[in-house]
């Protein structure tokens, strides 16, 4: 373990989400609802990274996430790495995968879509994973992933 990593305290059991672009850190916090988590959460912001220049990471003690929860992160940062920690050791490393559908993550750009007019969750189908094309389950309008706006946290 080198000195840079030691700046953020190690966890015994839990999940480390690494290689988050710093600009996306708060979006990741919102998507995983970390504001509601009761176990210790350590956030590293603007750390040095060989791969990315600057990066952010989050360590969540005593908490594991389902693949479905984690894959929702691919909307904001497709290159995030996930480390599953058990007894201080990394027992598994995962990359996020673009899921087949996104639930309650992306806001529909169509103002006449029912999702923008009713208190309800949005659903988008990922119809082209390579090109990042989404299609609203309700109004059927298509949207490019890079243009997608996230739903405001109060609606998630």
């Amino acid at each position: 373990m080198n000195k840079e990593e030691l700046k953020v305290s190690a966890i015994q059991n839990g999940t480390v989400i690494d290689h988050i672009p710093s600009s996306k850190l708060l979006a990741v916090v919102a998507l995983l609802h970390l504001e509601n988590i009761k176990t210790p959460v350590t956030v590293g912001y603007n750390l040095k990274s060989k791969k990315m220049g600057k990066k952010s990471l989050i360590k969540i003690a005593d908490r594991y996430f389902t693949d479905e929860e984690i894959n929702q992160l691919s909307v904001v940062s497709p290159n995030v790495t996930l480390c599953i920690i058990k007894d201080y050791d990394v027992v598994e490393k995962k990359q996020v995968q673009m899921p087949d559908s996104l639930h309650g993550i992306v806001q529909c750009p169509n103002p006449k879509c029912i999702t923008n007019n009713e208190p309800m969750k949005t659903i988008f189908h990922v119809i082209n994973k390579e090109k990042g094309v989404l299609k609203c389950h309700y109004c059927e309008k298509e949207e490019k992933l890079e243009k997608a706006r996230l739903v405001s946290p109060s609606n998630v």
Binding site: N110, K112, C113, I114, T115, N117, E118, M120, C136, H137, Y138, C139, E140, K141
Partner: peptide, 10 residues
């Protein structure tokens, strides 16, 4: 019949 798109699906 509804003026909003996706209303019937919902």
């Amino acid at each position: 019949r509804h003026f909003l798109e996706g209303a019937a699906q919902y």
